[in-house]
Amino acid sequence: MSFEKTFQDKVDQDIRIEPKDWMPDAYRKTLIRQISQHAHSEIVGMLPEANWITRAPSLKRKATLIAKVQDEAGHGLYLYSAAETLGISRDEMLGQLHSGKTKYSSIFNYPTITWADMGAIGWLVDGAAIMNQVPLCRASFGPYARAMVRICKEESFHQRQGFEILLVLSKGSEAQRRMCQDAIDRWWWPSVMMFGPNDDASPNSELSMRWKIKRFSNDELRQKFIDVCVEQVKLLGMTLPDPDLKWNEEKQHYDFGPIDWEEFKNVISGNGPCNKERLAARVQAHEEGAWVREAAMAHAEKKNKEKNAA
């Protein structure tokens, strides 16, 4: 039996592929790309929310927001470690992020302008991320699937927190309700786009499905997300910025309006409102941290030498 067939048989029987198992090169490459993009998204995703840590409106909100952003750093760590089992180092991955070779989720190229954005990101962005990520807990590659189990638990907690931020605003003053609606208006379409291109325009999907890295199509997940949000927004007494949202009795789903794929393409290719700022912030943190990393290594080496000499 060929390696390829043994591998595919395992995948078909839902037996996890582990780092030391044989795997097709394309499988390895696809996973490295996907997991490192995901890791980068976690750490770039810290920035728009970290924006509001110093302006959080209460001590409790401040603490919760720090904890949330810290969780994202933790997710980045698990994911970089999962990718490292495939034979790429964290330094290499960071290099690819900083040079623009690997992407991160485009959603983080949108600005966080008001406090309500902390709520909208939790509810919509984390909500969309969960839809995408829950199926990944059963992904065929063991380390990735296990990392996703932990991540999904924390993400659903974040989503509830985000919704609760909006709920409080929705019951608040006129200015707070305005903040709430404005944030939903700005984050809705970018969140809907988080599921990626329509199925007929998604080139990597078919193979990923066969390899069980992906289990549902972009459009299936997007529809599920929209169906859930249409109900949830009612609890807020707010509206989603899509006049075409309408229940379709036959399909048993909500119909929705056309997605602006031009915007999507533009933000992905670097023309979003904060692409340059986000990447610059990561590069700056990395460069300004170089002397710290060098000092830590130099000190460790000295200690090692002392130990060996003793």
Partner: peptide, 13 residues
């Protein structure tokens, strides 16, 4: 907390 997201090493952030 002003450092959150900007630390020199992810673990130290």
């Amino acid at each position: 907390s002003e450092w959150t997201g900007h630390g020199p090493i992810l673990e130290q952030d």
